[in-house]
Write a protein that binds this DNA or RNA. Sequence first.
DNA 1: CGACACCTTGAAGAGGTTCAAGAAATGTGG
DNA 2: CCACATTTCTTGAACCTCTTCAAGGTGTCG
Lengths: 267, 267
Amino acid sequence: MPQPIHLHRTEQGNAAAHPAHAGATVIPISAGSIKVACSNCNLRELCMPMGLNKEELDRIDAVVEIRRKVKKGDYLFNNGEKFSSLFAIRTGFFKTCITAEDGRDQVTGFQMAGEVMGLDGIVNDHHTCDAVALEDAEVCVMPFDRIEELSREIGSMQRHVHKIMSREIVRENGVMLLLGSMRAEERLAAFLLNLVQRLHARGFSQSELVLRMTREEIGSYLGLKLETVSRTFSKFAEEKIIEVKQRHVRIISSDALRDLVNRTECD
Amino acid sequence: MPQPIHLHRTEQGNAAAHPAHAGATVIPISAGSIKVACSNCNLRELCMPMGLNKEELDRIDAVVEIRRKVKKGDYLFNNGEKFSSLFAIRTGFFKTCITAEDGRDQVTGFQMAGEVMGLDGIVNDHHTCDAVALEDAEVCVMPFDRIEELSREIGSMQRHVHKIMSREIVRENGVMLLLGSMRAEERLAAFLLNLVQRLHARGFSQSELVLRMTREEIGSYLGLKLETVSRTFSKFAEEKIIEVKQRHVRIISSDALRDLVNRTECD
DNA sequence: CGACACCTTGAAGAGGTTCAAGAAATGTGG
DNA sequence: CCACATTTCTTGAACCTCTTCAAGGTGTCG
């Protein structure tokens, strides 16, 4: 499924040499100069196993075949595409979404630095969702057969891969709870708390965030219409729980948000 | 979390010797007599990798530490419990559900013979959901460290484990689409089609099924109230799409159900 | 048989959607 | 750099789907 080509301003002088092909754009980064080894990456705690010896660390560096830049609006991979690699986000922000036969569309997640995408592709050797960059991004491409090879040889690597997959299953369980049993306000509160918590774990503010996605994308993720998302933002602002100015959100009372999510009344 | 003990008629004379303890009941099956090796199990295609040689098959048999019987209403494992094993269903029917802090409850899946449960426990070494038998059941207990060991040594086993986890991720993606963007009728239609398709793959009828769960459990899974589930069943029956008599459902027109799910109109 | 869990159905009500219009921000091209 | 087009966001009003509350029916199990 082809997608529109978006052209955006680029920070790189040589970008013109890499025409922005839809989705398939692969921009190798000259080895040695820009490349950062996994063993030396500041995201290591997020995407690599801990407690490795020197030799193991060196081998893990070899998991990343290449780095790839993805411009805002471009696809990292899309539904139906042959699966071969997992992708660890170095910088940038993504959404993943699935499309039903009738064209209906569901955002299944938002991913940020240190998180892994592509797990859906393992079972049928083809991706079953689209991964779209919501801002200019850079990912580490990790060929899955290389990951499996290394997993067979290094126990902690194997356990790490299993944990990543299990974590995704648990995350999706949580989204099912949200979609299946929460009302609009609770959903949005849970969403904001989750986002800000993940951002905080990456060194950002505990109370301020910039949404990388539209109201419509938030709505799709939360099973709501964009108007409902907008209205709920306004309601929170009116109640002085948050301040909203377009995509800038400041959380005034995270306690109030938590109360909304864990409302002790019903059920 | 203790749960009520349900006593039901049993097909086995020796059942009285195994009082139905809540959840923790472990009933070893005398090796040799009843035990069926994985390599000889008629569910092999469902839960074991294909294309193994004799020696590998023998080793895989050793993955199953024990078999365990779970009576209807009992817990196979519950939220918070230490994780140590995955469980492959031999017979019976389960639901898995998560409980929010405020007591809200969400059924995250229904599992039948050949399907694997427990993947949620890997990431934090503790289960994050409950697994409840909806009918008397028997599962193969597969210690996860044994699975990992074998995965390191047999490539096809490793790939198989990865596929099982990826399949669960893809399944949950589908549930998110259902919960996030479908209306009641569409949800129930999708649910019935999915159930009957899985049952058919196990040799049951393509058009008739017996629901193992209550309207309330269906509702929880589909993000609907039990009354809505009941009404929707009645509506389908009125439209001669299905026949419903309590938990017995006969699908008269699976095309009509498919049309409901893939309604080509909106979005 | 009697108790209990489960299911069905009706009527009223709430929460979210839909439709519509306009405002604000962003990007585009001259 | 400004004017215009486009996308995104907000808000109101009517509507609809699903929920809630209530009552009665059906089935099951000890």
